[in-house]
């Protein structure tokens, strides 16, 4: 990779990757909670609607959806997304579906006795959810959310396909410009690895705070090697169902 390419494309590309990651993570988090809570609703119609969302989006290929958003959607509805918006929306909606399974599972893991204690103190349903169930479920959610965030970071490379100038886009540009691809792609892989490492560190901090918030001590762990290295994208496959 040449120096001008590095400073004018790759470095801004890193920033774009970070922006896309954070933007789609925020959207995915919102979707996770809305759909995850709705899937635990006592109203069947809410459960059903949220279940449908989950079934559709966990079956969706993020790349196909992204290309559809970028190319088919404008032709179908006459409304064009900025490429970056198409990428963020596609990633946020699909990864949010996986995240909803994390939220639902964590809510389900809160002991029934806690719900009963809440009833005994006359809390309303909403109060129980907000004051008892969600705060207790949160520390359970952080480690799988960390895994999902790493998946999401990797997923952001897809935006290069719809011409968002992230760091993958810069590496492709370098290949086309110089015909020499080894340094660019090696640098790119290392850059993703470093970002993943930084995100994991950050999430470890979140986890420690979350656990301290319920009087637990976090188990010690090293580097990227988390205790449970499952992929929430895959875990969501056999989960739940409509309703």
């Amino acid at each position: 990779m040449t120096w001008p390419l590095f400073t004018e494309w790759f470095l801004p590309g890193v920033w774009i990757t970070v922006q896309v990651t954070l933007g789609s993570a925020a959207l995915a988090l919102l979707v996770s909670f809305v759909i995850g809570i709705a899937r635990s609703s006592r109203l069947w119609i809410v459960r059903f609607a949220a279940g449908c969302y989950f079934e559709v989006f966990r079956g969706t290929s993020a790349l196909v959806f992204m290309l559809w958003m970028a190319f088919a959607f404008p032709l179908m509805f006459g409304w064009v997304f900025v490429p970056m918006a198409a990428g963020v929306v596609a990633l946020g909606l699909t990864y949010g579906a996986y995240g909803s399974e994390i939220v639902r599972g964590a809510l389900q893991s809160v002991p029934a006795a806690q719900r009963e204690a809440g009833i005994a103190l006359s809390f309303t349903r909403a109060q129980r959810l907000r004051r008892i169930e969600l705060p207790q479920a949160w520390p359970e959610m952080v480690p799988p959310f960390n895994n999902l965030l790493i998946e999401l970071l990797k997923g952001t490379a897809l935006v290069s396909v719809i011409s968002v100038a992230d760091m993958t886009f810069a590496a492709n540009l370098s290949r086309l410009a110089s015909n020499e691809s080894a340094p660019a792609y090696t640098l790119l892989l290392v850059a993703y690895f470093v970002l993943a490492f930084v995100l994991t560190r950050g999430m470890r901090l979140v986890e420690r705070r979350a656990k301290a918030g319920v009087g637990q001590r976090p188990e010690p762990r090293r580097g990227l090697r988390a205790a449970r290295k499952t992929n929430p994208k895959a875990d969501a496959q056999s989960a739940g169902g409509v309703g």
Binding site: A113, A117, A120, I132, P135, Q136, V214
Partner: peptide, 8 residues
């Protein structure tokens, strides 16, 4: 089982 709220 007491059922205190562990998060508080």
């Amino acid at each position: 089982q007491f059922n205190l709220f562990p998060n508080m």
